[in-house]
Design a protein around this nucleic acid. Structure first.
Length: 499
RNA sequence: GGCGACGUGGCCGAGUGGCUAGGCAAGGGUCUGCAAAACCCUGUACGGCGGUUCGAGUCCGCCCGUCGCCUCCA
């Protein structure tokens, strides 16, 4: 159906902006690396998932048939890829021992819990469900088979402690990250190798033998668990075939994760693994790197849960908007000011929707044509290396058009406005929630009391007792409630105030 | 040391060599019993130094600075 401009994206593989090339015309095979579920995902994780979501939405609106795969890593991998000692801890094991981990019976339970939390936050941010969301633990057989194949083809070798990929057997190793010169890599770090039988410091684990690990599977090499990189190679191949059109993830994954994926997959298939690589930059919070020690580790639930629950009380779609207010490839500084601006924009959107719903009267559509032009601009901006700031600007211009028409807004124009907002939402997901979780609106526990006061104030206004009316306004304001008077009556809402 | 991204007005941020980006914040105004919302008006920025050009925020060179990866991390 729909068609539009070609999608141009920066390709890490070539260090240049290129048109997305499809292996099969009309179809997009897209893989995006998901998180390890050992704690709540933070907004940095979600910025990267959001990049994938926008690409998915964009491709769909352009009429492509998209297979969008994003995994859940529910295996606790080694904290250091090289550390192959049998007592080596992994992140899940660590999480289990931490204070938050006390309530879980075992790592499986912990993984289950944080998977659930991830899916909730995913919906709250209006991230669409992928076509397939595979889990590492459910693809163990394929992972073992892949390791066997690599051994058979001479790309891997076995030691007492595990199976390693032989980087020397894959000359193109380094083509994604530019880490071509092994000798130039920091030797101090590289020499922290616990397996003396590893042949090359660059070699990475495909399988680790460990009969004591909290998660273990039986393999031709005994009990153990898979290396971190192999799961993505396997799941991508299983659902998308040998060559992907597009592979995305956070910038930190470029090396070693994606580099190793390429090595494994191409060593097995002999074909290019992915033609286009997109990496989302890390975000900072108030100018600082986000880290637990700095206490600026922001999760979606912390920002979106109500103030009574200790959260910031931010509208989830405003958070989504804030996360796309910077370009995915530029350093992004997440600040309260940005969030505030996004909250404001969301309020404008809500006001516009109300306006459109109330519009009546005959007359020609005086909005549709101009809005369509803006839709094209949004789509073009996204096709141009996912220029979300430019896209948001066009959205705001559209809102301005709608608001600016308030008096002449007849039904036909309003219908065009509603249609436009829906189309914008298909592309950006910032207009209204599309998932059941996000649609649920909780009844405000104080609603009855507030409405009683509001009625009292209305009566006071009708009898022109403005002193009384203002006193009630004051009282509600101190409760964090804002009242809006209009010809149709008075309404209220909780004031959104950040910091 | 290697690889890469980036430096625009108080803040965020777009920008194809020549024509007002836009937003948030601020100030002023219209409307409103008051307020909110909405709308209108105001503010001349492009890290530094050279170069190319009739003309550079936009191209080239050098310098300075910020950030990321190279080690678990989205």
């Amino acid at each position: 159906m729909a068609s539009g401009p070609p999608i141009k994206l920066y390709n890490t593989l070539t260090n240049s902006v290129e048109e997305l090339q499809l292996e099969h015309p009309g179809r997009l095979a897209f893989y995006s690396c998901g998180p390890t579920v050992y704690s709540y995902a933070h907004i940095g994780n979600f910025r990267s998932f959001l990049t994938a979501d926008l690409l998915f939405r964009l491709a769909r609106t352009l009429g492509l048939e998209v297979t969008y795969v994003t995994n859940i890593t529910d295996v606790g991998h080694l904290t250091e890829d090289d550390a192959a000692d049998a007592d080596g801890e992994d992140r899940m094991a660590k999480a289990l021992q931490s204070k938050e981990g006390e309530r879980f019976a075992n790592v499986w339970d912990l993984a289950r819990y944080y998977t659930g939390a991830l899916l909730q936050d995913w919906s709250a941010l209006n991230l669409l469900e992928p076509t397939v969301r595979p889990r590492a633990t459910e693809h163990m057989r394929e992972q073992i088979q892949a390791v066997e194949t690599l051994l058979e083809k001479g790309h891997a070798y076995e030691t007492e402690q595990g199976i390693y990929f032989s980087v020397a057997s894959f000359p193109e190793y380094g083509k994604l990250s530019g880490n071509i010169n092994a000798d130039a890599l920091d030797q101090e770090v590289r020499e922290v190798v616990s397996d003396p039988d590893k042949r090359d410091p660059r070699d990475f684990a495909l399988w680790k033998k460990d009969a004591k690990h909290l998660m273990q599977w039986y393999s031709p090499w005994g009990w153990g668990f898979p290396g971190w990189h192999i799961e993505c190679s396997v799941m991508a191949n299983r659902y998308l075939g040998e060559t992907l059109d597009l592979h995305a993830g956070g910038e930190d994954l470029t090396f070693p994760h994606h580099e190793c994926e390429i090595a494994q997959s191409e060593a097995i298939s002999g074909k290019p693994f992915a033609k286009h690589w997109v990496h989302t930059r890390f975000l900072q919070v108030e100018g600082q790197k986000m880290s637990k020690s700095l206490g600026n580790f922001l999760t979606v639930r912390e920002l979106t849960s109500s103030k009574d629950e200790g959260g910031w009380g931010v509208d989830a779609l405003a958070l989504r908007m804030a996360l796309m207010s910077g370009h995915y490839r530029k350093p992004f500084n997440f600040t309260k000011a940005t969030l505030k601006a996004s909250v404001k924009h969301r309020e404008r959107i809500a006001a516009a929707i109300q306006l459109l719903e109330q519009a009546e009267g005959d007359g020609p559509d005086r909005l549709g044509e101009r809005l369509e032009g803006l839709y094209d601009r949004i789509q073009q901006a996204l096709c141009d290396d996912l220029n979300t700031p430019e896209a948001l600007t066009a959205v705001i211009e559209g809102l301005k058009l709608i608001h600016g028409m308030s008096k002449g807004l007849n039904r036909a124009s309003a219908d065009a406005g509603v249609a436009w907002l829906n189309h914008v939402n298909d592309l950006l997901g910032i207009i209204h929630p599309e998932t059941p979780e996000a649609t649920e609106t909780e009844e405000d526990p104080e609603a009855a009391g507030i409405e009683a006061l509001l009625r009292e104030r209305t009566e006071a206004r009708e009898s022109r007792d403005f002193a009384r009316a203002d006193a009630i306004r004051e009282q509600l304001t101190s409760m964090g409630i804002e009242i809006m008077d209009s010809a149709e009556g008075s309404t209220w809402k909780r004031r959104s105030s950040i910091g």
